[in-house]
Design a protein around this nucleic acid. Sequence first.
DNA 1: AAATCGTGGTT
DNA 2: TAACCAAGATT
Length: 353
Amino acid sequence: MRDTADPLDLLHWYDANARDLPWRVSPRARASGVMPDPYRIWLSEVMLQQTTVAAVRTYFERFTTLWPSVTDLAAAEDAKVMGEWAGLGYYARARNLLKCARAVVADHGGIFPVTREGLLGLPGIGPYTAAAISAIAFDRPEVVVDGNVERVMARLHDIHTPLPTAKPELTRAAAALTPETRPGDYAQAVMDLGATICTPKSPACGICPWLRACAARATGTQAELPRKLAKKQKPTRFGIAYVARRHDGALLLERRPDKGLLGGMLGWPGSDWNGAPAPAPPLEAPWQMLDEEARHTFTHFHLRLRVAVAHVGKDATPELGEFMPKHAFRRSDLPTVMRKVFDLAQGTLTDRA
DNA sequence: AAATCGTGGTT
DNA sequence: TAACCAAGATT
């Protein structure tokens, strides 16, 4: 006879095992009345969308140092924010982050909405993030369902329906457990459980506070859950990138359009990666094609990029992009694939210099 | 509503 | 090493 999963058991586990995260108010502090800063909860939740805690930490510290409040962020320059987000991925998040900050300031007096519905109306805040902010920042009993919760619920109830079909069923299971007391800590507790014990592979069932309630564990199917529909395999795409360095060290870069891949980010001029014929170089120069190519894998395709480099004169006038002065260029402002191109070009350009 | 959208760590 | 995975949102 199995026990029924009790939210209180999880909360007790959380009280003793909560991870120390830069945006988190510890359960002890929370119990003494400390409330989280909604700005920091929002920022962390957006950064954590499909992104690991380890990757987010440094970006979160950097953002909150540069912009301590939503008002500060709303007043930031687009290019500065995109540059600071570079490397974290899913760049629509950064564009929506700015839109959201400015909407909070312009339409809500600089105060985040408290309800799930109010939060859902803001850019970049979807069902998960709205519920998470409302629960964590305002301690409201919203049903928070992320990948961790899906996994925990699938195992707790031994649900074999594959995702995303199982999503509604898993959400109902999560709703049935969400408590009226300490819903904010509970939401974080389920996610911590999924991140540290009920992990995708080799879950540590032996130390799980819900061990005796877990149907999958009782059956031995925990490692197979949740089931997911097979993913399509990634095709390989090809392209070319042009790196032009002026004699004063300026580099030819272009701001990519807001829509689409790497939208709003800096990049090297070049072809699109859809098989279209290679475009003319951005300016007339003795281009040198490198032997090595930049390889990078995106969410849904592999990319192999040829890299062409050129030294150009002081009066070079590009048809695409703008020369960025040496002092204004930061490698860290580039998305990762563009950093790879830069590193290849850097090798030969410095060798020749 | 299926496709699109990044990256780095783990297995 | 290739596949899998992460506190999903948008269109």
